[in-house]
Write a protein that binds this DNA or RNA. Structure first.
Lengths: 191, 191
DNA sequence: GACAATTGCGCAATGC
DNA sequence: TGCATTGCGCAATTGT
């Protein structure tokens, strides 16, 4: 079981590049050294930037993508498997009218969402949310660590305080016991 | 040297996923709860599945992939750039038909590395390392939080202890002062 | 139901 | 050469 159905997912990914192609040898990396060490993947959103989806502030065009339909063949695993079965069993769908529910015509803009502007907007928003959430988590972790250190320090100080107080109590008790002895001596003497 | 030249590459990746869009109500997630929560992204593909190497000790299939050429366009940053230059400079032979920029015939197995077994092995090992590292980080964070709570509790107890000791010191001092007064009275009286 | 926040995951760059 | 870290985007899930 385990592996059987699970995985298999093969998702094809297409990196499209825009510029690269046309870009002359010239200035492709505008600023390699910039602090951004992250542009490995793709969009690297803008973060703040109000602009709708202005995209790639850093220069990379996120391209709209829009067009593109290449991956018709690139099915995915499970879905493909599933689909295959269905096709074999009841692929009558293809014959029938538009099955509405099934595979998308791959025409171009399947209404739902995948590569369309709508999709990209969602993705970009989520990417921003993710970055935000992670920054938050990072800060939280950092605060926790700081708090732990602080508490540790505070703890140490409290222990020192306790030590002092304990000594003081001891001293006072000792002093009192001495007084008691003295008093008793006087009593006996005077007796 | 080193990595400097890297980047810029904007790689857009499209994960296409299969089902998601059309996903019928049916049984799409075969097993949402199962431990395998991962095939969301891409690779993990089914691809071949000859199981060349043992792979995934942890049970996740790393799959082979081999075929596949989809991402002819999916070049990697540095490599692609480099290749492009060479092609342009040295092998202009290709004439001009195809948009020169298209580098890489997409034949099938470009020697270097990208989709090859070698690459997949590296990726899979890294994925394992990443999971390991993240588990470690998670545990560390958890421990830090626990420690903070523990220290906080300890702190509270220490403060209570201090309170008690302080009261004790006060009491003893008060008692002593009383004794002093009594002693003085006796002195004056006896005097 | 839409949308933000979280979370697990794989990728790639980089650290060691 | 190889594992360890880390930032990032994707997608699924959860919270509002």
């Amino acid at each position: 079981m385990s592996v059987s159905d699970s995985p298999a997912s093969s998702i094809c990914m297409f990196a499209l590049h825009h510029q690269s192609s046309s870009s002359p040898a010239g200035a492709l990396n505008p600023d390699p050294s910039s602090m951004s060490g992250q542009m490995s993947q793709m969009d690297t959103g803008v973060y703040g930037q109000p602009m709708v989806f202005p995209k790639t502030p850093d220069g990379r065009s996120m391209e709209q993508m829009m067009g593109f339909e290449p991956y018709s063949s690139c099915l995915t695993p499970s879905s493909s498997e599933r689909a295959a079965q269905q096709n074999q069993q009841d692929f009558s769908q293809f014959l029938l009218p538009p099955p509405a529910s099934t595979l998308r015509p791959m025409g171009q803009k399947r209404g739902p969402s995948k590569d369309s502007v709508e999709y990209r907007l969602r993705r970009e928003r989520n990417n921003i949310a993710v970055r935000k959430s992670r920054d938050k988590a990072r800060r939280r972790i950092q605060l926790t660590q700081q708090r732990a250190l602080q508490l540790q320090d505070e703890n140490h100080n409290l222990q020192l305080h306790i030590q002092r107080l304990s000594h003081e109590v001891d001293s006072l008790r000792h002093y009192l016991s001495q007084r008691h002895l003295q008093a008793r001596e006087q009593d006996t003497a005077g007796d």
